[in-house]
């Protein structure tokens, strides 16, 4: 059971990768990349979890409470921001590709080679 959250992260990563490889639509492919990346959120949060730890926000600091690791939570925030940035840029490129090749099927984008 102690491995279960990590396996969930691995599963999400592999499902995203499968979608990325088999996708026939650029927008779908970009969303698969988002799924692939969200596995890192699960992994990071799982690594930072302490049994019995509270959320990393204090309402009372006198009792010296133990919180789950706030560092990985901050990293997840960074992760999400980067994902948003990458996704928006990729979607823009997908629009461009559609204008250039008249298709959003990655298989049809032959002219990208060479």
């Amino acid at each position: 059971m102690s491995l279960f959250p990590y396996l969930v992260a691995a599963w999400i990563a592999l499902v995203g990768l499968y979608g990325l490889v088999t996708s026939r639509h650029l927008v779908h492919q970009i969303l698969c990349l988002v799924v692939l990346q969200s596995s890192t959120y699960v992994l990071l949060l799982a690594v930072g979890f302490k049994t019995g730890g509270i959320a990393p926000y204090f309402s009372d600091v006198s009792g010296r409470p133990v919180t789950v690791d706030p560092v990985v939570q901050a990293l997840v925030l960074t992760d999400i921001v980067v994902e948003v940035a990458v996704t928006s840029l990729l979607l823009g490129l997908a629009v461009r590709a559609h204008r250039r090749f008249g298709s959003v099927d990655p298989e049809e984008l032959r002219q990208l080679r060479g």
Partner: peptide, 27 residues
Amino acid sequence: AFGHYRGPYGYLIDRLTVHYTHATGLV
């Protein structure tokens, strides 16, 4: 193992944040 966090940073942030910043939102 899940729930058995190792590593100094989480504990350090717990102890140092309020002292250095007076903020209670650690993230």
